[in-house]
Write a protein that binds this DNA or RNA. Structure first.
Lengths: 228, 228
DNA sequence: GGTCCGATTTGACACCGATCAAATCGGACC
DNA sequence: GGTCCGATTTGATCGGTGTCAAATCGGACC
């Protein structure tokens, strides 16, 4: 499933050291973790982990995007999260169970670091900075997943899209331009929408001054978006 | 907001020691945490924490039920989680931010243990069993919140209700009877439904052999529920 | 057993978003 | 610049769920 598995080289160690998980570690823990990381390259659409498989490792995304999702009995898929470079996934199983609870798929060619859970568990018990980093990552994921539940339950499609745009918008007001880092397909899934619904949401935002051309989104008036 | 704040007595220490958070601690960490816990009684419907307030403590439910929710700009509320006896809440802020990200309200008279976050943070850095317990609780909450997202996105109201019943159902098959531990109002919120939608979901489950009288739910055929 | 009030159910209706199909767009590759 | 194919948009339709209002239920208290 994963080809070309190798130890992290200098460049990869540099990327890893900047991630939320690794950046606050003690020097010894950092170098230990960099040593146990295994880097792999996965092609677009490849399956990285499969729901139900025994969970022996978690991952950190170095480049590319990874989609976490679950499949229902009737074959429909629901996205749980999309991981960007620097994000971890499946870390929730470090003390949370024996099997993966969702599948993960590369949304495009991706570079991943793989950490053996047992080794990290041992490190976490020896070095409090490792435990603290894990707690921080888990807290952040929990908070953002709660946000996701609330968004689904309170906001309509155009509101979710406006929200998304505002979170990536550098400006506080005035006009702005954003380039989506991935296909609209993926964005739709993240927001809990069918692709058609995302498209319609964008077109309903036209009256608020939002223009779409390919992956580029023009926002005429950022503060107007906040009122959607 | 919280009246009659006192240290845990014998009975309360017993309840606390059985919770998921405290049951796996080292003896010294356990007794230290029992010492710093503050017990309070909150009347039904009282607000326990308010979104946006500075977060200085997290809580453990000893008796009663606590509803975590967020309010939208237009005043509608969305439930995030309902905490039962033994559950913790707001622990996601131990390394996750300065302010509460949701409000909490007693769904009925409740007994709570309050832990000062700063004190627990210090303990977690000294005693790995404390850090491990926190990681376990965070992982569990993250996994169940992911389940919630997926459920919302994949299942209809009757399916969510069937799911809920199955998770509380002692039997694997045959018939069963369940008594809801709280009002249907609260259950509806947990499942992301309006009370009317919950009611209609129950009535659509009648054809599957589910009978409702007040808080008592009769399930004619447990395995039939699995096919909903 | 009867009363009462809030909880729950039922009915009517509107809206949102999923789905399917068809048209169009956009970017990669010649 | 032209071609091509998958991605996206648009149109039509439908089912599911929220909302409001009215009827009914159920449990607590006399």
């Amino acid at each position: 499933m994963l080809d070309k598995n190798h130890k992290a080289n200098i460049r990869e160690r540099g990327l890893l050291a900047k991630t939320a998980f690794l950046k606050a570690l003690s020097p010894t823990a950092l170098s230990r973790l960099l040593d146990i990381a295994h880097i792999s390259m996965v092609p677009s659409r490849a399956t990285i982990i499969r729901e139900g498989d025994p969970a022996s490792a978690f991952y950190c995304v170095l480049t590319g995007y990874v989609r976490l999702y679950r499949v229902s009995r009737d074959g429909r898929q629901a996205d749980i999260r999309v991981c960007s470079p620097g994000d971890m996934f499946a870390e929730c199983l470090i003390y949370g169970g024996e099997k993966y609870r969702f599948s993960a798929q590369a949304a495009e060619n991706a570079n991943l670091a793989r950490f053996d859970m047992q080794e990290v568990r041992e490190l976490a018990e020896q070095d409090p900075t490792v435990a603290k980093s894990i707690m921080t990552v888990l807290s952040d994921h929990l908070l953002s997943t709660m946000d996701c539940v609330v968004n689904d339950r309170l906001h309509t499609a155009p509101q979710r899209v406006a929200d998304y745009l505002l979170t990536r918008c550098p400006m506080e007001s005035g006009s702005a331009s954003i380039r989506l880092p991935y296909q609209k397909n993926l964005l739709a899934g993240m927001l809990g929408l069918a692709p058609e619904a995302l498209s319609r949401a964008f077109s309903s935002l036209r009256r608020t001054g939002v223009t779409v051309r390919g992956r580029v989104i023009q926002i005429g008036d950022v503060s107007a978006l906040k009122d959607v």
